[in-house]
Design a protein around this nucleic acid. Structure first.
Length: 495
RNA sequence: GCGGCCGUAGUCUAGCCUGGUCUAGGACGUCAGCCUGCCACGCUGAGGACCCGGGUUCAAAUCCCGGCGGCCGCACCA
């Protein structure tokens, strides 16, 4: 259901330059959005918070791998087989089958490479039914989740695809990185980058994109040692969890591990960190939960999956992070596909394939969910504003003269230029009331106003976005005070 | 992808049914000037639109077809 809130938010975001529909002047294409100035700044700030938590704190290797993958890579990973085939779905039991397989099995004719319409005709003509329950089948649809291209001249053997997830890069580099890690596990590898999925029909703005950013941390571990040296630091984090076989409940990270809700320490750790990340960027705690996926729901490679979900008024619970235990799947399949040996030995000399624990974050979705949860549609005067915290707000401070008089503008510009060294700050002239409203709308936390008194005693006022209250402070202490406020060290009320 | 609804400035909208008076009207926003000493203020002025392509017609924002895009439902979303 389309809510007016989402409509209003998207309108504000476009109007103020956070995001724009891509290729708009050519009519646009669904599933693609560009980020404008404010959106890009917001995105970078969210990325940085992730970086601090998942790269810096984890002491992870950071990599930047290619977005184009040659066909054999995706053949090995299983993506190609899963997502470029014609499929039909049983209308009764909901089973999904490969259309070409059904035809081949029942009729014995080879139909590889036939277009979906041909397969559809054959199925209709021969009245082929669901192999499980013999009910009618849906129309044949082509799964084209991978964007296809060619390396070099267009020829079948050089087919390539845009990566559907960044982590294939981690797996492909495993051998090298393991060596650089002193042949030791665990090995932490992180990457922030683009991925592409050719969704059949993306909807919902930033929720389902065809080109999107991911932030992924893959931890290669000994399957016997799915633990984390830093576990203690996060064991007390409270988690709202919904396990497969029981009701939603709140437990600490430690309890989730000890109570067997998650199957090992690293999974508990992943969830706790996820909670901390989303809390930091400003998602209300009650809007964050973790849900275990059943075998049918989770990706084909996963042994265990816990999605982090954020509550959206418009879309309900939205998946923003997949915390996966990928087991040995990836290294095993790339070992098979490439012929390279990707096993390691433990201290006892036993050879094994490392398991992969994955924390896979989207960037665009969390940003949308965040924006929706901090969007105040009406503050009581029919103004809307974004209640972003200082860590993510694209612009933290604005400076404005109370009236558009030359000497006042000169003064406020001076203050603006000083503040620019430390903050993302805007300078505005014109009618103050309107400017406050404009700044509220893009999430600016504090407005510094130059007025008549500034000339008498060198003071200015700081206006707090959320309370709209103002306090008067000396120009000399402005920098320090703003820094404390923006970083969250001080509350506005304490001033 | 299938079915339903829809597409007029940055936004909301009038006009469409019943083709001509539309050189497309209004409101908000934008910009400029004046005013203004604290919360989308007031006055004056400026700029800005019929989604794209084709057809019917003397004449198309208006009727018809196709495309693109949006929303809703179904499906899809490893």
């Amino acid at each position: 259901m389309l809510s007016t809130k989402q409509n209003k938010l998207m309108a504000v975001l476009t109007k103020r330059g956070f995001i724009f529909p891509s290729f708009e002047i050519y009519g646009g294409v669904s599933g693609f959005y560009d980020y404008g100035d404010l959106g890009t700044k917001l995105k970078r700030k969210v990325q940085n918070i992730w970086y601090n938590l998942f790269v810096a704190e984890e002491n992870a290797f950071e990599i930047d791998t290619r977005t184009i993958l040659p066909k054999p890579v995706l053949q090995a990973s299983g993506h190609l087989e899963k997502f470029t085939d014609p499929v039909v779905q049983c209308q009764k039991c909901r089973g999904v089958f490969r259309a070409d397989h059904i035809i081949q099995d029942k009729l014995g004719i080879i139909v590889e490479g036939f277009p979906a319409e041909e397969l559809d005709k054959i199925i209709k003509k021969n009245d082929l039914r669901c192999p499980k329950c013999s009910s009618h089948l849906s129309k044949v649809t082509e799964f084209n989740l991978l964007f296809k291209t060619f390396i070099g001249p267009e020829q079948k053997e050089r087919e390539a695809f845009l990566r559907p997830e960044t982590c294939q890069g981690h797996f492909l580099l495993f051998k090298r990185l393991f060596q650089l890690n002193g042949n030791k596990l665990p090995l932490f590898v992180a990457q922030i980058g683009r991925s592409y999925r050719n969704e059949i029909s993306p909807r919902g703005g930033l929720i389902r994109l065809r080109e999107f950013d991911q932030m992924e941390l893959e931890i290669f571990v000994d399957p016997e040692k799915k633990t984390h040296p830093n576990f203690k630091k996060y064991e007390k984090v409270k988690l709202k969890v919904k396990p497969l076989d029981s009701e939603e409940k709140e437990v600490t990270c430690k309890e989730s591990v000890e109570g067997g809700i998650v199957s090992h320490e690293l999974m508990g750790y992943s969830l706790a960190k996820s909670k901390v990340f989303f809390r930091e960027i400003g998602v209300p705690e009650k809007h964050i939960r973790f849900i275990e996926l059943s075998k049918d729901e989770r990706p084909f490679y996963a042994l265990e999956t816990w999605d982090t979900q954020i509550w959206s008024e418009t879309f309900g619970w939205v998946e923003v992070t997949a915390n996966n235990d990928r087991g040995a799947h990836d290294l095993e399949s790339h070992m098979r596909g490439s012929g390279e040996k990707l096993t390691v030995r433990n201290e006892e000399g036993e050879e094994f394939i490392p398991h992969v624990i994955e924390m896979s974050y989207g960037l665009d979705r969390p940003i949308y969910c965040l924006l929706e949860s901090v969007f105040v549609e009406n503050d009581g005067r029919n103004w809307s504003y974004l209640k972003l915290n200082g860590k993510v707000a694209p612009i933290e401070v604005a400076v404005l003269p109370v009236v558009n008089k030359e000497e006042m503008v000169k003064k406020s510009l001076g203050i603006y230029n000083k503040l620019r060294k430390k903050f993302n700050v805007k300078h505005l002239t014109g009618y103050v009331g309107k400017n406050y409203a404009k700044m509220d709308e893009i999430g600016v936390l504090y407005c510094v106003t130059v007025d008549g008194e500034t000339f008498k005693n060198n003071t200015v006022t700081i206006r707090d976005r959320d309370s709209r209250k103002q306090v008067r402070v000396g120009v000399d202490e402005l920098n320090q005070i703003l820094e404390d406020l923006v970083s969250g060290k001080k509350n506005f009320e304490e001033l």
